[in-house]
Measured scan of single mutants.
Amino acid sequence: MPSETPQAEVGPTGCPHRSGPHSAKGSLEKGSPEDKEAKEPLWIRPDAPSRCTWQLGRPASESPHHHTAPAKSPKILPDILKKIGDTPMVRINKIGKKFGLKCELLAKCEFFNAGGSVKDRISLRMIEDAERDGTLKPGDTIIEPTSGNTGIGLALAAAVRGYRCIIVMPEKMSSEKVDVLRALGAEIVRTPTNARFDSPESHVGVAWRLKNEIPNSHILDQYRNASNPLAHYDTTADEILQQCDGKLDMLVASVGTGGTITGIARKLKEKCPGCRIIGVDPEGSILAEPEELNQTEQTTYEVEGIGYDFIPTVLDRTVVDKWFKSNDEEAFTFARMLIAQEGLLCGGSAGSTVAVAVKAAQELQEGQRCVVILPDSVRNYMTKFLSDRWMLQKGFLKEEDLTEKKPWWWHLRVQELGLSAPLTVLPTITCGHTIEILREKGFDQAPVVDEAGVILGMVTLGNMLSSLLAGKVQPSDQVGKVIYKQFKQIRLTDTLGRLSHILEMDHFALVV
């Protein structure tokens, strides 16, 4: 994948999101292997301009796509893939009243899908469409860049269908997702969380590099694949309309690839034109409109599966009536509230959605109805927002919020430890010299600072030695090549209790 991002070429006709291997024109390309080798690009942008032909009021008969309808489940399912879809609609009884809503608040519980998330729908649909058009064949390999849930859905379907599955996901995604993927037989590649989507090191860039190296491999490409919004247009939206008897006044959905909100909203605009569509985008993402909503100094966020630093091709923002931004604290607070007060075992993005819903639905009156999409299960986040310690460490809970008995030293300040200034190293000294210094002084790690004293990161003896043994660096290389740029900081005025929580999850903390 090139470091400079080429513009994806656009073909003359058809839909841009065809499933299957992508040609340089962004659509299915038939021909000899030699032709494909000559024409197939190194990668295709996940934010390529959409060429979708959908228009409100256009006859369904003019759609270029294969459409399906929700099917009634048999008493005995032939395999677990038949437990994807037909998820329950559940009334939220307490939270709406707590925040003064007059309307009825309903939750579409997508964590009841077989793999635990709304992404099971698009995973199965992308595979079925690729099999139907002859792209996927027995023994082929599926590769997908994902925040985890699409990966789980694909790995689940691949396990049943017999495909090899490789999932490329950023490091910030939970260990629970990784464990589930491994249990399903998927191979996992992790990428830096802070890598831009168009960087060769991003999950998108690495996935395309693997595709170019592995024979008979395919990126189904949830960011561009029409099967993504079509899955929701054909099934999720129809289920909502049936469950609500066609009567709903507002739908609120958090947005990642945009397939969920695009597919549902398009069908609702056709069948229930008075329904307002509300999009939820986390602070630090750029999906919301108008652009002024996205202006923030924050560039990272903890909530998973929603928000991006690019506009995915499948996201149709014209069908969203209003956007709201959400933050991590309210997302996790509301997710825990949904679990504790409503018994809905949902993930953090569901918290984002409901946090926005109780604001947006203030305009609705008694007798009206708001539906929220709860995308995934708490299963993926047992060591994250479900953990009091994690919430404390991230600053989303305060010590006084917890009532468990603490040891005698818990409320003492870090400054009472009488710490001395640490050994520091410059980023320009060599790895070999740094190892000598650390061994001589008896230290395992040291902060790396520039000549102005600005902290650049941390270097550890173990990481340097393993990097040297693996051949990633040489003793003569500058130590700046092996620094940890993500590390926890703590102030002298913070409590030892807070430091204790940090050290339970990290090997060190830097006192500043």
Rank of each mutant, 00 (worst) to 15 (best):
P2G: 14
P2C: 10
S3M: 12
S3K: 10
T5W: 08
E9M: 05
V10D: 03
P12K: 10
C15H: 10
H17S: 08
R18M: 05
P21W: 12
S23D: 10
E34F: 14
D35F: 03
D35W: 04
P41M: 09
I44W: 04
I44A: 13
I44R: 15
P46W: 01
Q55M: 12
L56R: 15
A60K: 11
E62L: 12
P64H: 08
H66S: 10
H67R: 15
A69N: 10
P70G: 11
K72F: 08
K72H: 10
P74D: 10
K75P: 09
L77N: 07
D79P: 04
I80Y: 01
L81C: 07
L81T: 08
K82L: 07
K83V: 04
P88K: 04
R91Y: 13
R91D: 08
I92R: 04
K98Q: 11
K98P: 10
G100C: 08
L101E: 00
K102V: 05
C103A: 05
L105R: 05
L105H: 01
C109Y: 06
G115R: 08
R121S: 00
E131K: 14
G134K: 06
T135C: 03
K137H: 09
P138Y: 15
P138T: 15
G139A: 03
P145L: 00
G148F: 07
G148P: 01
G153V: 01
A157K: 06
A157N: 07
A157F: 03
A159N: 07
G162V: 03
R164F: 05
S174M: 01
L181G: 00
G185W: 01
E187G: 07
V189A: 14
T193Y: 08
R196A: 05
F197T: 06
H218K: 05
L220D: 00
Y233S: 04
A237K: 02
E239N: 01
E239D: 05
I240H: 00
L241F: 09
C244W: 03
G246C: 01
K247N: 15
K247H: 12
K247Y: 06
L248H: 03
D249S: 07
V252P: 09
V255I: 04
G256Y: 00
T257C: 00
G259W: 00
T260S: 09
T262I: 00
R266V: 06
K267I: 11
E270A: 07
E270I: 05
K271N: 14
P273C: 15
